[in-house]
């Protein structure tokens, strides 16, 4: 199959970027979207042109490294799917595909489709962990956790930190990501001792990083590859009030 890519090319943060058109032939519809970009890059190498910079790692939807804006949607045309899980069969022969990096003031462009998502790391550093030294793996049944609680915690723990929520949000809000990281631990008994401190420090860091505020457009829950619900944000807000009152 043959498609026309319009891909954002930008040398670095300080330089101007623009969409550049590439006609790509001999693609298979069984190729993943990232393989199609690999294929394009190989042709660019042969032509002695600079390859398109984009990120990927596991390519099986669990690492969160990949992520670009495809045809006006974060991670492409499907709901709740990461870029690496998108295949060329989702497009038609002769289609034009516009590819842009994540857009957010907090995710500065490094090069082409690569953005700097280290703001997420700095939020994680503020408390998305438990400080107690646990030694070797504890006996699994030492702390009993009701299945409903464990399930609810796992639902938000599924966040892969790809940044699609920020990219699709008109406010560049990181509320879905931050709420997932907070609720994951604060729901569990292990997270309780530092629950309020964790919440206040992580949300403070979120603001210091200059992320916007959530206005519940719900675009994030549609694009999130881990299907995290915006109810998680409402829960974070409830916990925030509790932390302010009792923390």
């Amino acid at each position: 199959m043959k498609v026309t890519f319009k891909i954002w090319r930008q040398e670095g943060l300080e330089t101007q970027g623009a969409l550049k058109t590439y006609d790509v032939d001999r693609l298979s519809e069984d190729m993943s979207f990232l393989e199609a970009l690999d294929h394009l890059n190989e042709t660019l190498v042969l032509k002695n042109e600079k390859v398109i910079a984009f990120e990927s790692d596991c390519r099986e939807g669990i690492c969160g490294a990949c992520g670009v804006f495809i045809n006006g949607r974060a991670h492409g045309p499907h709901d709740n799917m990461s870029t690496c899980q998108l295949h060329m069969r989702s497009f038609k022969d002769g289609d034009t595909i516009v590819v842009e990096p994540w857009r957010a003031g907090t995710f500065p462009i490094v090069k082409d489709l690569v953005v700097d998502r280290s703001a997420f790391d700095r939020i994680i550093e503020q408390g998305a962990y438990i400080t107690a030294k646990t030694g070797t793996a504890a006996e699994a049944n030492a702390i009993l956790i009701p299945k409903e609680v464990a399930d609810a915690s796992m639902d938000v723990a599924a966040c892969i930190g790809c940044g699609a929520c920020v990219a699709t949000c008109k406010n560049a809000s990181a509320a879905l990501f931050v709420s997932a990281k907070i609720n994951h631990l604060n729901k569990l008994p292990q997270g309780q001792p530092e629950a309020h401190k964790r919440l206040l420090e992580m949300t403070t860091q979120m603001e210091l990083e200059n992320f916007g505020s959530c206005t519940f457009t719900a675009a994030c829950e549609v694009e999130c590859p881990a299907e995290i619900s915006i109810n998680s944000i409402a829960e974070m807000n409830a916990r925030y009030v509790k932390a302010k009152l009792f923390g």
């Binding site: 804006f69 857009r103 003031g105």
Partner: peptide
């Protein structure tokens, strides 16, 4: 301000 540059599409 947080959003900055917007998407082309």
């Amino acid at each position: 301000q947080s959003k900055g540059v917007r998407n082309v599409m």
